[in-house]
Design a protein around this nucleic acid. Structure first.
Length: 281
DNA sequence: AAGCTTTTCAACCGCCGTTCC
DNA sequence: CGGAACGGCGGTTGAAAAGCT
C-alpha cells in the first residue's frame, strides 16, 4: 500500500515561500524552538505541510547558514568527503556546519560533478587494481565498491586478533584513533577508519588550511570562524564512513591521510586504490 | 533587443528508519 | 506486537536567472 504524500491535502500551499511565511515560521521557532513539525502548520496558521516547514527552516532560515559561493577549501572538503561517504549529503554536511545538505548536494550536482568529469580522464585512468577502467564510473564510486569489499572482508575477519604490538588506540567504539597531533599513533599497517578519526583528520586539515590554503582570494577561510559557535568541524556523529558500523581496516593512515588531505589527489588516489586491494583479508 | 539554451537552486517527492499509540 | 505517523534523507523537478547567438 502506498502512503499518500504528506502534503496531499487541500489547502496546503506549495511553491516558493513568501517573506511573510518566513517571518511567521521564524517567529514560531524563536518562541518554541525547532521540532514538533507536525504542530507547526496548525500553530502558526501556515498553509504548509510540516515537511515543507522543516525543510524551509533547515535549508534556508536556520541561523548560521552561509550562502553564496563555496570556498576552495569547502570545495575540496566536499570532494574528499563525497569520495569517502558517497552521496550521503547529510553526513557530509555535518562537516560543513554552515552549509546545508541541500546546498552541498546542489553544488555537487551543478559544479563539482562537472568539474570532476572535466578532469575525469586523468582521474579515471586507473582502477583499483591499476588496470584501466571506464571513466564513467568515476573513482569515488570505485572507492565505495572498495569499501564494500572491505566491509565484507571485515565481517569475515571478525575473529582477527590484533597483534600485541599493534598500538591501536581504542576509542569508545573499540576502534583505533588518531593521536592529538592528527598523525597516527601507531605503526600498524592497519588503521581503523572511523567517524571519529575522520573528524580529527578534518579538524587538522581545517586548522592547517586556514593558514595556507588561501588560493581563493575573494573568499577567505576566515569565514568559517565568523559565527564562532559551531563552525569548527563539529564531530557530530555521522554514520560510520562505511555505514553499518564498519571499521574500515584500510590502508595505512599516512597513505590515507595523504589521499584525504592532499591538495593534489591524483597520485594518491591511485596509491589508495592499490592499497585498498592490497590488504586482502 | 529578442529569442533560445543552459545553469542554478529552492522546493517537492517518495522512500526508509524510528517513534508512538 | 503491529500499524500509523513522523522525521530525515537523497533524488528529482521546474521556475527564474544568466549566458549565448
Amino acid at each position: 500500500m502506498v502512503r499518500p504524500p504528506c502534503c496531499d491535502k487541500e489547502g496546503v500551499k506549495k511553491g516558493p515561500w513568501t517573506p511573510e511565511e518566513d517571518i511567521t515560521l521564524v517567529s514560531y521557532i524563536q518562541e518554541h524552538g525547532p521540532g514538533n513539525w507536525r504542530a507547526v502548520p496548525a500553530l502558526t496558521g501556515l498553509q504548509r505541510c510540516s515537511k515543507s516547514c522543516r525543510l524551509r527552516w533547515t535549508n534556508y532560515l536556520r541561523p548560521g547558514i552561509k550562502r553564496g559561493n563555496f570556498t576552495n577549501h569547502e570545495e575540496k572538503l566536499i570532494i574528499h568527503l563525497q569520495a569517502l561517504l558517497g552521496n550521503r549529503w547529510a553526513a557530509i554536511a555535518s562537516y560543513l556546519p554552515e552549509r546545508t545538505d541541500n546546498d552541498i548536494k546542489n553544488y555537487w550536482n551543478t559544479h563539482l560533478k562537472k568539474k570532476l568529469r572535466k578532469d575525469g580522464p586523468e582521474d579515471c585512468q586507473l582502477g583499483p587494481t591499476g588496470q584501466r577502467s571506464t571513466c564513467k564510473g568515476q573513482w569515488e564510486k570505485r572507492l565505495q565498491t572498495d569499501i564494500n569489499l572491505a566491509k565484507q572482508a571485515l565481517s569475515e575477519a571478525l575473529s582477527f586478533d590484533p597483534k600485541p604490538n599493534d598500538k591501536l588506540v581504542p576509542n569508545s567504539t573499540g576502534t583505533s584513533s588518531i593521536g592529538e597531533n592528527g598523525s597516527t599513533t601507531q605503526s600498524s599497517p592497519f588503521y581503523a577508519l572511523t567517524t571519529d578519526n575522520i573528524s580529527k583528520l578534518l579538524e587538522q586539515w581545517n586548522k592547517g588550511s586556514t593558514s595556507n590554503s588561501g588560493s581563493s582570494s575573494t573568499e577567505t577561510e576566515t569565514e568559517t570562524s565568523g559565527s564562532g559557535s559551531n563552525c569548527a568541524m563539529s564531530p557530530q556523529p555521522i554514520d560510520s564512513v562505511v555505514g553499518l558500523g564498519l571499521n574500515f581496516c584500510g590502508p595505512e593512515l599516512s597513505m590515507f591521510e595523504s589521499w584525504l588531505l592532499d591538495e593534489s589527489t591524483d597520485q594518491d588516489q591511485g596509491q589508495f586504490y592499490d592499497m585498498s586491494l592490497d590488504f586482502d583479508l
